[in-house]
């Protein structure tokens, strides 16, 4: 099982624990599994079949650029975080 950490505001709003566990062959289907356990989460993470604008997924320390098709082999933790603006 992969350890999942959702953003503070989603946890607060939907009453999700700080750390949850889920599995999935890729990010899309992992999110579907989270949705099964915690209905409502998917709306915060996915929009029009993509990771929602303003949302990023950090998979074992690396922010995915592939989004929902990112394959999850040998992954131990995923952090969903607000994406970060800035950079110069």
């Amino acid at each position: 099982m992969i350890k999942i950490f959702l953003p503070y505001k989603i946890r607060e709003t939907l009453g999700v624990p700080t750390e949850i566990e889920a599995d999935g062959s890729n990010l899309r289907n992992l999110i579907d599994h989270i949705e099964d356990a915690y209905p409502g989460v998917k709306d915060y993470l996915v929009d029009e079949g993509k990771l929602k604008p303003g949302m990023s997924a950090v998979i074992d320390g690396k922010t995915t650029r592939l989004g929902l098709i990112h394959k999850l082999d040998d992954v131990s933790e995923i952090h969903f975080l607000p994406s970060i603006a800035g950079g110069s």
Binding site: L51, K52, P53, G54, M55, S56, S83, A85, G86, G87
Partner: peptide, 10 residues
């Protein structure tokens, strides 16, 4: 409408 999720957000 919110633009993108890279460095030019808003």
């Amino acid at each position: 409408v919110v633009r993108g999720n890279s460095e030019e957000s808003g």
